[in-house]
Simulated assay, not measured.
Amino acid sequence: MLLLLILALLGSPACWADYISEMYGSRKGTFFCSSEYNGEAVKGIRVSTNGLGIILNIQLQLGDFWDAVQGIPGGRSQELILGPNEYITEIHGTFLLNLKQLIVCTSRPRCASFGKRVGQEFSGFPKEEGEVLKGICGVRGVFGIRGISLKWGQAPTMLDTQGSGYPDWIPADAQSQYGPEK
């Protein structure tokens, strides 16, 4: 009986307190977390939005595979695939009742924008130098993703990526204030 109680507590929201305390947006809804795959950094992100610009779901590429879709089904998908030794180093966005925009910036540096810039702005950075995005947690509701929390960790290596052949800026809608100066 005690073992069942311990297992129940480990799977409960109380263990998610670290991610919930650093949540951007609403904390009300169904909690989710991406997988963690052998300590791999995120190598790609796919974001789906609806016609109103609400972010419906997010999917991460961890190593060589795509994790489960987190959020609700539907929408139009756009993705950012990272090059060799390229990592996500910051995320900006906006939320109103739901997550409305994500701007994902990498070590290259380049940024991709998903959704529409409406509502309260936020910026997420690693706490320590050399950390990169390893996963996400969040809260989904009936109409899409309501809040997001970022999991940071050390990158495997931080090598020069200048010759990767990827463009500097990949706008999903239009350039934002977070993109590199041209």
Rank of each mutant, 00 (worst) to 15 (best):
P73S: 09
E131W: 12
R108N: 13
R117A: 09
T49G: 01
F114I: 08
M23L: 12
N50P: 08
G138E: 10
F114T: 15
Y37D: 14
P73Q: 04
R108M: 09
P84T: 09
G25T: 01
I136Q: 01
S26A: 14
G83P: 06
K100W: 00
C111S: 09
G124T: 05
Q59L: 08
I88V: 15
G135S: 09
I58Q: 03
L80D: 11
G74K: 01
K134M: 14
G124Y: 00
V104P: 08
S107F: 07
G141T: 12
G25W: 04
P84R: 02
L82K: 12
V47N: 02
T94C: 11
I91S: 06
R146S: 12
P84Q: 02
S107T: 13
D64C: 04
L102T: 06
F122P: 03
S113N: 14
H92K: 04
K100H: 11
G119T: 06
W66C: 02
G53C: 09
G138R: 00
S26Q: 05
A68E: 14
V142P: 06
F143S: 14
L102R: 07
S48L: 04
P126N: 03
L96T: 10
V47E: 00
K127W: 01
G53N: 02
L62K: 13
R140I: 07
Q78W: 13
R108K: 14
T89D: 11
L99M: 12
C111D: 08
S77N: 06
S26C: 07
C137S: 08
V69D: 01
L82V: 09
F65I: 15
G115C: 10
R117P: 00
S48H: 07
E128C: 09
T106R: 03
S21T: 15
I54S: 10
N85T: 06
L133I: 14
N57W: 06
F114S: 06
R117S: 11
I145L: 14
E40W: 07
L82P: 07
I45K: 10
S77H: 00
L96Q: 13
T30R: 14
V132P: 10
K134D: 07
G51Y: 10
F114Q: 04
I136W: 05
F122A: 10
H92S: 13
N85S: 05
I20S: 11
I88W: 10
R117G: 05
F31L: 14
Q101H: 01
G130E: 02
G39I: 08
C105D: 12
C137L: 07
N38C: 03
L62R: 15
G53R: 02
R146F: 10
T49W: 00
T89P: 02
S34H: 11
A68P: 02
G53I: 05
R27T: 09
I103S: 05
I20F: 08
F32Q: 05
R146D: 02
G39Q: 13
F122L: 06
N57L: 03
I55K: 05
K134Q: 15
I72C: 01
M23T: 04
F65Q: 11
S21M: 14
S48T: 01
F32T: 10
